[in-house]
């Protein structure tokens, strides 16, 4: 970092918390925040770029995919879909069911710290699994708007760079690695294990497993929307049963009052 002298503040004037110095400090924090989960995005991006080049696409499609869509797991799926020339309706439906989980991120992502404007729009656009995990994983940290956006920009930078480098390398070296698409399977396996470990909720795991197997049995092609609907319905039934059990019936209430 350069050591240019800070503009001399007027005597007695306090440095504003959103001054340039403070903002640099926040960005430095963001850099360390992204060292773990964010750092994994670069090698994952490399694998994605390689997959794009193997699909026979020009390398810059890897850059466009990662820069515009910016939802890692969906992008891996998209490459598989465009290879079989899936209709746009399938692509829309797949995007919807794969990313519907982001709806629930809104409940706890600290976006209210970001000032309204372009920054807030970007922050919503870049609310990925990683950005969500980093910010909500440590709720006691002081998450300023600058720091949140810094985390998101850095994560996207690692991802886009990784994908671009991977695709370029794949094109140049004419690499063909059969079975590379397993990266996506492994990614979901890891995320599933970690999500399960966080709550250790066996019924949900079983409902999901059944929903997936029924979806495959009914139609491998439309497995995703079928399984997601079954999963949501199953969970709602479970929620409904639980609240019914937890709330005493009006009749029981009445009896209690009489006692």
């Amino acid at each position: 970092m350069t050591t240019e002298p800070a503009p001399t503040p007027r005597r007695g004037a306090r440095p504003r918390p959103d001054g340039r110095r403070a903002r640099l400090g926040q960005l430095r924090l963001a850099f360390f925040d992204t060292a773990g989960a964010g750092g994994a995005l670069f090698p994952l991006g490399l694998a994605f770029g390689l997959l794009v080049s193997q699909a026979g696409l020009d390398w810059w499609w890897a850059t466009i995919f990662t820069a515009v869509v910016y939802a890692g797991s969906l992008e891996f799926i998209l490459v598989g879909l465009v290879l079989v020339a899936a209709p746009l309706s399938t692509i829309a439906l797949t995007s919807l069911v794969v990313n519907v989980r982001h709806v629930f991120y809104a409940l706890s992502f600290p976006i209210q710290r970001v000032r309204p404007g372009l920054g807030k729009l970007y922050s919503a656009y870049a609310m990925t699994d990683e950005a969500y995990a980093i910010t909500t994983g440590r709720p006691r940290e002081n998450w300023t708007g600058t720091r949140i956006i810094g985390v998101q920009v850095l994560c996207q930078l690692y991802w886009v760079l990784g994908a671009t480098v991977g695709a370029l390398a794949g094109n140049r070296l004419d690499l063909h690695l059969p079975g590379l698409e397993f990266t996506l399977t492994a990614l979901f396996v890891v995320l599933a294990i970690e999500a399960f470990r966080a709550r250790r909720d066996m019924p949900t795991a079983i409902i999901a497993l059944l929903a997936g197997l029924i979806g495959i049995a009914l139609s491998p092609e439309h497995m995703l929307p079928i399984a997601m609907s079954l999963l949501t319905a199953g969970l709602l039934v479970r929620f409904w049963m639980r609240t019914r059990r937890a709330q005493p019936t009006p009749h029981a209430d009445h009896l209690q009052e009489e006692r």
Partner: peptide, 17 residues
């Protein structure tokens, strides 16, 4: 749903793959 869905969705996505 916010609590329970993420783990469930990941399991479905493994089966999708």
């Amino acid at each position: 749903l916010a609590e329970e869905l993420p783990a469930g969705i990941m399991i479905v996505l493994v089966l999708y793959c």
